[in-house]
Amino acid sequence: MLKSVADSYDLWLFAPKEPDWESRYLRGNTVVDTLDPREAMESAVRLAESVQIAGVLCYDEIRVPIAAIVAETLKLPCANVEGVRACRDKHLGREALAAAGVEQPASRAVASLEEAQEAARTTGFPVVLKPRALAASVGVVRADGPEAVEAAYSEASEAYFDEIPRDHAWVLVEEYLDGPEVSVESVCRDGRVTPMFVARKALGFAPHFEEVGHTVSADDPLLDDPAVRHVLQEAHTALGLGTLVTHTELRLTRNGPSLVEVNARLGGDLIPYVARLATGVDYGKVAADLAAGAEPDVTPVRTASAHIQFLYPEHDLDVTSLTVEDELPPGVHEVRLMVEPGRRLRLPPRDHVAGRYAYVVTTGASPEECAEALRAATPLIHLAGTPTG
């Protein structure tokens, strides 16, 4: 992201510590508590006295509300602070979407196991329990019957990030949506939504919802699907979102697309990077152009497919060695080893993204070609370790 943006704009980084690897992309930086809205606003106002600021951009899930506040304070293109808060707090988002009649699962915020059990009985099994304001599928678990609710509630209620305060009614009990899950990255400009690309997700570690892979095709038919476009626009309008890039997750149910959530940022898991390989569009630059008030160009310059697959061990282990063979098959764009010997890997739900040891990026004319290249590449990555108890 920083490299993409730095190719077109000067960057000034607000972060809670001095930059390290980021320095090569920066014109300057300010050390500031990026979770303190007042401190961030005051620092931005001081900076604007000596530097012309074109826009405010944030790719961190937890800090997007602060970035929206700073942009609004400086009277720059803005996502709308309340809309961003409704994206971060899934309960607030559900309430806004329900009031507007957007297609979504039934949802109830609960503060106790007893309330969760009652909500599950009312909704009907299976249900999904999740924390109302986390990310990366942490604490999200399906309960298929009454006997599974207690364990699911315990997991969802105990999930936390150090930087996020927990609300009293911290857990959502929601209707389970059957069908494939996709994410849609969109440009929202003054409330008008244009989908850029679709990522089709591979999920693993049921009853959890770990995202283990994503496939992007430049000509995915969902981009022009009227029902998908309708849900996207209705959701953004209901949340009051203004000018920003968004990452919207949908389930393609037998009754049509239904909204899982809207996030006020580009997707994680290197999805924009994979999409760039498929379409030729630099989505980091798109996000920066939008933040600076420019009209971004999201027209694909190539028509291909690309896939990213994250690799997990078969069981929890302490890594003793991790290697990849030099000669990789055609269609393998990149293999990245993510851990070193001595690292302990634990599978979801004990760890989520931290349980990965490598990822493989493949490209081809179709998703099938990407899958074929992945099947050829995976045996060439060798993980060894000592099982843990």
Rank of each mutant, 00 (worst) to 15 (best):
F310S: 10
V324L: 09
S305T: 11
H307I: 03
H307D: 12
A354S: 12
R302Q: 15
M338N: 08
G364E: 02
V360P: 14
E334A: 06
Y312I: 02
R344T: 13
V301N: 01
L347Q: 05
V301W: 06
D326F: 00
V319F: 05
T363F: 05
A306I: 10
V301C: 02
D351A: 03
E327H: 11
L345V: 07
E325S: 13
V360L: 14
E334L: 04
V332N: 03
E327G: 01
R336K: 11
H333N: 07
P313V: 04
A304C: 10
T363H: 08
E314Q: 14
Q309L: 09
V361Y: 08
A358F: 13
P329S: 01
G331D: 05
G364Q: 01
E340C: 00
T323V: 00
V353I: 11
P348S: 08
P341Q: 02
A358W: 15
R350I: 15
E340N: 01
E340K: 00
P349I: 07
E334P: 08
P329W: 10
V353M: 04
T363Y: 03
L328G: 06
R336D: 08
V361L: 13
G342C: 01
T362K: 11
M338W: 09
Y357I: 02
G342T: 08
A354R: 12
A354M: 12
D318H: 14
H315M: 06
L345P: 04
V335G: 04
H352R: 10
S321H: 02
D351Q: 10
V324Q: 03
M338R: 13
A304Q: 15
Y357A: 00
D351E: 11
P329K: 04
V332L: 07
E327W: 09
L337C: 14
G364N: 00
V332P: 09
S305P: 08
A304T: 14
A304R: 14
H352F: 15
E334I: 07
E334V: 11
A358S: 10
P348H: 06
L311W: 05
T362F: 14
V339D: 03
T363M: 02
T303I: 14
R343C: 10
V360K: 13
H333S: 13
S305Q: 05
T363N: 05
V360T: 15
L311I: 11
P313S: 03
S321L: 04
G355L: 01
E314D: 15
E327I: 07
P330F: 03
P313T: 10
E340P: 00
E334G: 01
V360E: 15
V339H: 06
Y312L: 09
A304M: 11
S321Q: 02
D318Q: 15
Y359H: 15
L317M: 11
Y312S: 05
D316E: 07
T362L: 10
T303G: 06
V360D: 15
D351G: 00
R356E: 08
V353T: 13
R302G: 06
I308C: 01
G331A: 08
A354W: 12
P329N: 03
R336Y: 09
H315G: 04
R336W: 10
R343V: 12
T323D: 02
E327R: 13
H352C: 05
P348W: 13
G331H: 03
L317Q: 05
H307S: 14
A365S: 13
T303W: 12
L347H: 03
D351F: 08
Y312P: 05
G331C: 07
R356N: 01
